[in-house]
Amino acid sequence: MARIFVITDRRSEWKALVSGAYSISGEKPLVVTADKAIAQAAADFGADAALMSGAEVFWNYTDTIAALVEELQPAGCFFGTSPDCRLVSGRLAAKLGISAIPDAKSIDNTYAIEHLIYGGSVVQTSKSTGKQFVALFGPGQFEEAAIPEQGTVMNVDYVEPKWQIAVKEKKTKEISAVDLTAAKRIVAVGLGISKKEDLDMVRELAALLQAEMACTRPIAEGLDWMEPERYIGISANFVKPDLYISLGISGQVQHTVGITDSKVILSVNKDPDCAMMKQYSDYCVAEDLYKIVPALIERLKK
C-alpha cells in the first residue's frame, strides 16, 4: 500500500494523525510540516518527515504540498481541522479534482471515510474519485502509538505561490492547552447560563469534581464566554468522558453528536421537555441550575 501524508499546522495534533495513518496503511506516514521541531519529533516517533520552508503563512505552502503529492503519489493526505488546514486541504482537493472529507470520524483500509452530515443526523461513508483521498481529522480520532524504527527528515523545495495575501497584523490570544477529548469528567454549559460571571460557580463545581469545563457553540463563538477549544459539537470536539454533566443545555443535535460516547450523562435544565433531558441523559434534574449547582457544591465540600 502507498503511504499517507500527515499535514497539520497545529502542534498538538500530528501524533494521533500519524498513528492513525500508520494503522490504516501499514506504511510509514510522511509528516509534511514547516516546523523543524515537529519534523524531528516525527522522525523520532517513527514517521518520515518532509520539512518545508520559505513561507510566512501556512497557505503559501499549498503549491509546495501539491507538487510533493504529484511527485510521491501517496495514497492520500490526513489534515488537521484548523482554519489553515481547511484552506490548504480545500485548495489541494480542487487541484486533485476531488472533495476533501472534513471532520472525518473514521477511515478503513480501503480509504472509505465516514463523516456526519445534515447537522449530525446522517452518517455518510464516501471514497475519493481521484488518485488520492484527502481527509480532515479533529483531535482525538486516533489513539497515539509510536511506529517502529526511526524515520528520516528530508527537505522540500519551496514552490512560489502565484498570489499573496498580506497579513498586516496579528492580534494573538492565548491558545488554551485543554484537550477535551482526553478528559474523563466534563462539566458543560449552554445558554441556560445568563451571565459570564455565573461561570465562576460552574468553575468551582468542575474543580471539585476534577472535571474539565466545556460548552456549546453559542457560548464560545457567539458570546465569547469560553475559548473555542472548549466547545463540543459537530464541527469541534467529540468527547468520550466517563461523566458528562450538562447545565442549561437544550440538546440540539449539533451539540449532542459530540457527547454520545459519554459513559454517564447527567443533565440539569429547567425545561424537562428539551431534547437533552428526554433523549440524551441517564440522570435528569428538571430544576433551575442556579439552585442545583450551589447545592451540589455545598454537598461536595462536605
Partner: peptide, 29 residues
Amino acid sequence: TGSEIIKVALPKSVQRKAVNFSGTPEEIA
C-alpha cells in the same frame, strides 16, 4: 464529482436511562 458515496446510515443511538432526580436542591444534590 469529487467523491463517491458508499453508504448512508443513521448514527448509532445510545439508549439513555432518563432517571429523574427530584426534591429540594439539597435532596437532589
